[in-house]
Design a protein around this nucleic acid. Structure first.
Length: 684
DNA sequence: AATAGGTGTCATGAT
DNA sequence: AGATCATGACACCTA
């Protein structure tokens, strides 16, 4: 993904990228990657058209028609036995064609197979490589036979022959080869046959012949399984070179999911755990092999692994939005609706297929941060299934069967994916009630940690953006869509309100537009009526970047956008008003406390003042007594007692006492010194 | 019925 | 420029 992003941003050349990715054994929808970045609102739709519905969309779409979230449960409809002839690609092609939307879903398959190759070992991943090459020749042979307009959308290169082949593909006998590691060689042979052979036979005949050939060669390989490991690297290189040659020669290579499922079904002990365990060393050999055959020093593994998610990541966003004009829906919208109304049971194959992604170790924390958007979160989320769920090829094949429906729209939505159940249960995602931020806090974070087994960089609080989380905003709502509980869509039968029918209650408070749910606030009720795919709490607390991104990504009507903005404004103002009142109360309380404190201080000061006055009075009284005593003992020059009424005692600065006539005492301090001198003389 | 307190909302200015 | 915050004012609800 990084590689592609860089390529994208730098406007990398078509040929360059073509060569690079083809060397990596990856057939890429170049016209998808090299198209100018589509507008956000169209991105999902365009990608849907370009790459078809993705498993992620199935897995995580909360679209109500399929029962919303929590689609846990059986992997296939009750009572239905798996149809080994069913294939995802063929099924998708059928459905898409029924909708008139061209569709070639092979990019993901390629990537998947490359991963399987990378994980190849005695457990049978070699066979996947062979299958990849084999089916790729088949599919793309058709594409080459009927090329679309150059540079156009991938849909233009859709191959009817390939689709026919997918539909008519016979059932692959399951699981006769405990160790099918040697199938790569035979698959490559089939590939060569397909590439070189004249395509003058019916697709049915070719498939039968291929299957029979595979059987024979698989039986042959049973005898010398020990040679498998020795041959693996060579085969990988050989296949890679073969691909390179073909690609450079203009022969595109792709393959079908059907082959994969057939091969998977033939290996009962083929599990994700085996893949994960055996991945790193073989991966290294693959990379080495690829690097040895080219001077493009690129981390193919990473590029490929991210490539897988480019489609599904873009399609992750829960399409819970609506048609602006139900009558004037475009084919894209129809496709979109089909996609999200599809059977939720397809979530498991998505999950498990994603399990073929390289282990998380190949994603550094930096990478995760770099791509910490919904795409990665989805991948992370799905990766959790890899580590938790064992891979059952039969389940995969079962998941794609749809014996009773051609459109895929009639499947029972109550059947849920076990993987999703596990995921959701671990995240406490409830099926009822809007998930507020409190929930998101817990489950988003929890989910991420659990999903990546600790490789996910610790996000700051995801939802309390106002607490500075937004670094983690990637945490941002971008991955909220994975975990959203879009309660508003739990009632798909509810009539969609029109701008005419929707009445605004004015300023009335707590006016419930719908008597059916008194617990909803006005905005919640409005949001529900307008099918806003977010909870009010989410809308309000969502950081502005995520909010704007959401508005651009979702296909929202003007009325919905207006309502969402009003909800956000009112919600924030409500919080602000609450805070303001709280602050005001706090201020009042603080002021009251201040008043109490000041009053107490005043009383204290009053008491101190009274004590001081009392002390002063005591001192005055003592002074008077002292004066009286002194004067009673003093006599003038004539021996007469000094009249205390005419004289007064004064204490000088040096501590001496002076007998001063009272008229002099009142004369002022300016003459004090002179008085003192005279009194001193008098004393002397 | 009147009233006080609580709450949501709007308008407006500040950041 | 737009988003957000703070706050006064108003209306409504409830006890």
């Amino acid at each position: 993904m990084k590689l592609l992003k860089q390529w994208w941003s730098t406007g990398g050349g078509l040929l360059h990228l073509t060569m690079l990715l083809s060397l990596a054994g990856l057939r890429v929808d170049l016209d998808l990657y090299l198209l100018p970045p589509p507008p956000p609102t169209l991105l999902r739709d365009e990608l849907l058209l370009l790459g078809g519905p993705t498993r992620s969309a199935y897995a995580l779409s909360p679209f109500p028609a399929s029962g919303g979230w929590g689609r846990a449960g059986r992997l296939h409809p009750k009572g239905r036995e798996p149809d080994p002839t069913a294939s995802l690609e063929g099924h998708l092609l059928r459905e898409v064609r029924a909708l008139g939307v061209p569709f070639i879903p092979h990019t993901r398959v390629d990537a998947w197979l490359v991963h399987s190759v990378a994980a190849g070992d005695a457990t049978g991943a070699h066979g996947l490589l062979g299958a990849a090459a084999s089916s790729g020749a088949g599919v793309d042979g058709g594409s080459q036979a009927a090329p679309g307009g150059g540079g156009g959308p991938r849909a233009g290169r859709s191959s009817p022959l390939a689709a026919e082949e997918e539909e008519k593909a016979p059932a692959e006998p399951t699981a006769q080869v405990p160790d099918a590691g040697g199938r790569a060689s035979q698959e490559n042979e089939v590939l060569r046959e397909k590439c070189e052979g004249v395509d003058d036979r019916s697709e049915q005949e070719k498939n039968e012949e291929r299957v029979s050939g595979q059987k024979e060669k698989l039986q042959e390989n049973n005898g010398d399984g020990n040679k498998v490991a020795d041959k693996s690297e060579w085969e990988v290189e050989k296949t890679t070179e073969s691909r390179n040659e073909r690609h450079l020669n203009g022969t595109d290579i792709s393959f079908s999911l059907e082959d994969l499922f057939q091969l998977l079904s033939s290996q009962p002990d083929y599990s994700v755990e085996n893949i994960s365990e055996d991945f790193p060393p073989v991966l290294g050999s693959i990379s080495d092999g690829m690097n040895s055959s080219t001077y493009y020093n690129v981390n193919f593994t990473q590029a490929i692994s991210h490539d897988v998610n480019l489609h599904e990541a873009m399609l992750l966003y829960p399409n819970t939005t609506f048609r602006r004009d139900p009558v004037a829906r475009t084919s894209q919208e129809q496709f979109l609706q089909w996609n999200f109304h599809s059977n939720p049971e397809r979530t498991l194959p998505e999950t498990n297929i994603t399990g073929f992604l390289p282990p998380v170790e190949h994603l550094t924390s930096q990478d995760l941060l770099y791509d910490l958007d919904a795409n990665i979160f989805d991948e992370i989320n799905l990766l959790s299934f890899v580590t938790e769920e064992s891979f059952d090829p039969m389940e995969i094949s079962q998941l794609f069967e749809e014996p009773e429906s051609d459109s895929g729209l009639s499947l029972n939505s109550s059947h849920h994916s076990t993987s999703i159940t596990k995921c959701n249960s671990s995240h406490s995602v409830s099926d009822e009630g809007a998930v507020g931020y409190s929930n998101l806090d817990s489950l988003s974070h929890h989910d991420l940690e659990g999903a990546v087994g600790g490789y996910y960089p610790e996000p700051s609080k995801v939802c309390h953006m106002d607490q500075g989380n937004e670094t983690g905003l990637h945490g941002d709502l971008t991955f909220q869509h994975i975990l959203h509980n879009h309660t508003y869509h739990t009632q798909p039968d509810e009539p969609e309100p029109t701008s005419e029918s929707f009445s605004w209650p004015g300023k009335s408070q707590k006016v419930y537009l719908n008597d059916t749910d008194k617990s909803l606030s006005r905005d919640e009720q409005r949001a529900k009526d307008l099918h806003i795919p977010f909870s009010v709490d989410e809308i309000v607390r969502m950081p502005v970047d995520s909010f704007n991104s959401m508005l651009s990504r979702y296909y929202l009507t003007d009325l919905q956008v207006s309502l969402i903005r009003d909800i956000r404004r009112r919600g924030k103002n409500k919080v602000a008003a609450q805070n303001c009142r709280k602050r005001k109360l706090d201020m009042i309380l603080n002021l009251e406390d201040d008043v109490c404190n000041l009053q107490a201080k005043k009383e204290t000061l009053k008491r101190e003042q009274a004590q001081c006055n009392k002390a002063i009075n005591i001192m005055k009284q003592k002074l008077q007594d002292l004066c009286h005593d002194v004067f009673s003992r003093l006599k003038d020059d004539e021996g007469r007692p000094v009249n205390p009424s005419q004289y007064a005692l004064e204490c000088s600065h040096d501590g001496t006492f002076l007998i001063v006539p009272k008229e002099l005492v009142t004369s002022g301090h300016k003459k004090e010194g002179q008085k003192g001198k005279r009194k001193g003389e008098r004393r002397n």
